[in-house]
Amino acid sequence: MTIQTVNWNITEDEFDEYVWDKATAQFWLDTRVPVSNDLKDWRTLSQTEKDVINKVVGGLALLDTLQSEEGVNVMREDSLTRKEVAVINNFLMMESIHAKSYGTILTSLNENSVINDVYEWMNNDPRMQYKVQRINEIYQNEDNLKKKVASVYLEGILYYNNFFTPLWYRGQNKLANLSEIIKLVIRDESVHGTYLGYKFQLSFAKLAADEQADFKIWMYDLLDDLLENEFAFTEEIYAPIGLVEDVKQFVRYNANKSLQNMGFPSRYDNASIEDINPIVMNGISTETANHDFFSQVGAGYLMGNVEAMDEEDYAF
C-alpha cells in the first residue's frame, strides 16, 4: 500500500483549516498558570466550599480522562477529510492537557491526603461513574453518528456543570488562576463542540427522513437520561452552598447550545444567556489578571496573540 502525504495546499473543507488555525493559536499549558497563587483566597473558604470545588475539579479530571483516552480517538474513525484527522489529533492532545490541569489544581491547593480522597471519590461516586460509563458505552458500541452526539453532550453539557463553581468564584474576584485554567478549557471545548457538531451535521444530512426521525428519538432519550443523572448530581454537590437551581439553569443553557451546534433547535425554554447567574457570566467575561510577565499567566497567555476571553468566545 502506498502511503500518501496530507497536502495542506488542497482544500477539502475550509472549516478544517479554520478550526486548525483557531485550535493551534489557543495552545496553552497548565504549568504556565500559577494556581498556587490562589492559596490566599483558598484559605478564606469554608471547608464546605473547598469540598465542593475539589469535587467539581475532580469530576472534570475523570470526564477528561475518558475523553482523552477513548472519546477523541473514536472520532477519527469517521473522518471525512485528511485534515480532519489532524484537527482531531490536536483535540486529543488538548484533552490530555485539560486532564492534567485538573490534577495541577488539586495539587496546588490541597494536601496529599485530601487529593487522594478526591480521587477515591471521583472513581467511585455513582453519579460520576454513571456519566462516564454511559458515554463510554456509546463510544465502544455505537455507530459514528451516535459517538459524535455522545461527545458533544459530554464536552458541551456534562463538563459545564463542573465549570460553574470556578466561574462563580471568579465573578467575585476570587481564585483567579484556577478559573483562568477553566476559562482556557472552555475556550477549547467551545471549538471542539462546534467542530464536531458541524461534522455531525454533514453526516446526519445523508440519512433518509425515517432514519433521521429514529435517530432524533435516540438522541433526545439519551439527553433526558443524562440530564436526569446530572440534575441529581447537581443536588448532591451544590446543595451545601445553595447553588442548585443556578447550576441546573446553566446546564440547560449549555444543553441548548449543544443541540444548536448539531443543527437542532433549543429544547429548554427560559434558558438563554440572560437567564444565567450574572456572577458566573462576570466570571466568564473577566479579562486576564496578569500581575507581571513572569510569575502570573492568565487567559491573556495564548500563543498567537489571541485576545482575552469574552462571551462571544464562550459561544464560539
Results as ranks from 00 to 15, higher is better:
80 L>N: 12
127 R>A: 10
164 F>R: 04
250 F>R: 00
193 G>C: 12
123 N>S: 13
171 G>Q: 05
167 L>Y: 09
71 G>R: 02
249 Q>F: 08
286 T>D: 05
307 E>D: 14
118 V>F: 04
73 N>W: 09
256 N>G: 08
161 N>V: 09
278 P>T: 06
161 N>S: 11
47 Q>E: 12
36 S>A: 13
133 Q>C: 08
18 Y>E: 15
228 E>N: 12
66 L>Y: 07
245 E>Y: 10
126 P>C: 07
250 F>I: 03
15 F>K: 10
289 A>T: 15
75 M>V: 02
34 P>C: 00
132 V>R: 02
132 V>M: 04
167 L>E: 01
148 K>H: 09
299 A>L: 11
115 I>N: 09
238 Y>I: 06
189 E>I: 05
222 L>I: 02
121 W>T: 04
264 F>A: 05
259 L>S: 03
266 S>M: 10
124 N>V: 00
167 L>W: 04
139 Y>D: 03
38 D>A: 07
251 V>I: 15
193 G>L: 01
183 K>P: 00
192 H>I: 03
285 S>R: 14
99 A>E: 11
110 N>S: 12
287 E>Y: 14
59 G>A: 06
185 V>L: 05
255 A>N: 02
269 D>M: 12
142 E>L: 11
120 E>W: 10
106 L>C: 06
219 M>I: 04
226 L>S: 03
96 S>W: 05
169 Y>P: 03
272 S>N: 12
307 E>S: 13
307 E>R: 13
232 A>Q: 14
169 Y>W: 14
21 D>L: 12
242 G>D: 11
157 I>C: 03
163 F>V: 04
188 D>L: 06
178 L>P: 00
165 T>M: 09
